[in-house]
Simulated scan of single mutants.
Amino acid sequence: MGISYQTDETSWCGLFVAHCMSLVSDRLPINPLGARQWAKYGRRLDKGAPGSILVFWRGSPRGWKGHVGFYVSESAGHYHMLGGNQSNAVTTAKLSKRRLLDIRWQESYPVRGVRVLAQREGAASINEA
């Protein structure tokens, strides 16, 4: 993959997504460690589908910080996503739909699957750093 990753203190949600996507594509964003860079990857989807890439803002909608991971399911106000750097691990977290910036899909693969509706207890993540 050839991504320069300095230390474990570097946010690594983008690195996790890059590692997964490098298994199916040799095209990654210019800076895959930047979570918001994934909003330029592949093609846009109007709705989540299993495996689609979810890009969220973190801190401020207009800022540079973000979070990225893979769609697992959703409930009325939240997306449930598999991602890295969530409690310093690869986990499934619940994020508010209000924080969503974009939903992306790898260009060379057809979209398969449909939205997965789920009810999930517990608090939503508010800071994935």
Results as ranks from 00 to 15, higher is better:
2 G>H: 15
3 I>G: 06
4 S>D: 14
5 Y>K: 15
8 D>Q: 14
9 E>K: 10
13 C>T: 15
14 G>Q: 07
15 L>Y: 12
18 A>Y: 11
21 M>D: 07
21 M>G: 05
22 S>R: 14
22 S>F: 13
30 I>H: 11
31 N>T: 13
31 N>Y: 10
33 L>S: 10
35 A>V: 14
40 K>L: 07
42 G>V: 10
42 G>E: 04
42 G>K: 09
43 R>G: 04
43 R>T: 06
43 R>N: 10
46 D>V: 13
47 K>T: 15
47 K>C: 08
49 A>Y: 06
49 A>W: 07
52 S>L: 07
55 V>P: 03
58 R>I: 13
59 G>Q: 09
61 P>H: 03
62 R>T: 13
63 G>S: 04
64 W>Y: 10
66 G>A: 07
66 G>F: 11
67 H>C: 02
67 H>L: 02
67 H>S: 05
69 G>V: 07
71 Y>H: 06
71 Y>S: 05
76 A>L: 00
80 H>G: 01
81 M>D: 03
81 M>S: 07
82 L>E: 03
84 G>D: 02
85 N>H: 07
86 Q>C: 01
86 Q>G: 01
86 Q>E: 01
87 S>I: 13
87 S>L: 06
88 N>A: 05
94 K>E: 01
95 L>R: 08
96 S>C: 00
98 R>I: 00
98 R>Q: 00
98 R>H: 01
100 L>D: 00
100 L>Y: 04
102 D>H: 08
106 Q>D: 00
106 Q>G: 01
110 P>F: 10
111 V>I: 14
111 V>T: 06
112 R>V: 11
114 V>S: 06
114 V>M: 02
115 R>K: 00
116 V>P: 01
116 V>I: 09
117 L>A: 02
119 Q>C: 03
120 R>M: 01
122 G>S: 04
122 G>T: 05
122 G>Q: 02
125 S>D: 02
126 I>Q: 05
126 I>K: 10
129 A>L: 08
